[in-house]
Amino acid sequence: MTAARKGLQVIPGGGEGRQDAVRIRGLGFRLLDRQKRPLPILDNVDLTLKDGEFVSIVGPSGCGKSTLLNFISGLVPVQSGSVEVFGEPPGGKDAAIGYVFQQHALLPWRPVLTNAAIGLEVAGVPREERSRRARDMLRVMGLDGFEDHYPREISGGMRQRVSLARTLVCNPRLILMDEPFGALDAQTKLLIQEMFLSYWEEHRKTVLFVTHDLAEAILLSDRILVMSSRPGRIMAEYEVGIQRPRNLEQVRHLPRFTELHDSIWENLRAEAMKAMQGRA
């Protein structure tokens, strides 16, 4: 029954004639530690994201999950292996990528509205249009009435929603999310997950979602990849196989949820222990 397949595997890309959103082959990355010895961070990572797919990556802390996103976004140049985003090398001028950081990365001197509109502003969208589009997106995120507030004046959950709105309003084809809800309290997190899930189920953007929260990964994703402790590689993959649209409350009580949760945790536990001991 379980769809987990252990070990490295390559999903045949473009099965339905649609272009893959992300295709990573043999990606490796190493840094030099304090003694100038090479420290492998990522080891031979293979990964394919189909267009319109919601994929989560879970893994112990420090396994290179965020690093992986930085390669896909083009923030960090590829060291070895290959990364393609919609068939192009990452970081290209036309790449319509959104990136939701763990910290909201809002500009503190701008009120909510112009913060949400910065992507459009940089792209040269006329003032009125970007303001209208940003307002609309803020409304979707439940932030109407807060357009003129500065980031310091709103709660952490609201800041993260502004950050989401800022990303979504640019209409990216691929959204990278680095533990976007990790710093929120449990209730706020639940509400934002619901909000984001319903937005996603309507628009079906490709999402690569990094989290350490297994429940979150199961609730939101189509597919879950498990990364090993450092050097990070994809060591297991799970098809979630829960129908959409999903209701977060109901999903939690499905037998499939528990089954997946246990199975992934079993896989992850040893890695998390390794990561913890490595730190101690």
């Binding site: 976004s73 083009g74 923030l75 001028k93 790449a95 990528i97 959104g98 990136y99 950081f101 910290q103 990365a105 500009l107 910065i118 992507g119 940089v122 792209a123 640019c170």
Partner: peptide
């Protein structure tokens, strides 16, 4: 905050922006 600069790079901001 380097994250702010990263955010600007993601939205393809030019250096002057």
């Amino acid at each position: 905050d380097p994250q702010l600069v990263n955010m600007m790079r993601i939205i393809h901001a030019r250096r002057d922006q």
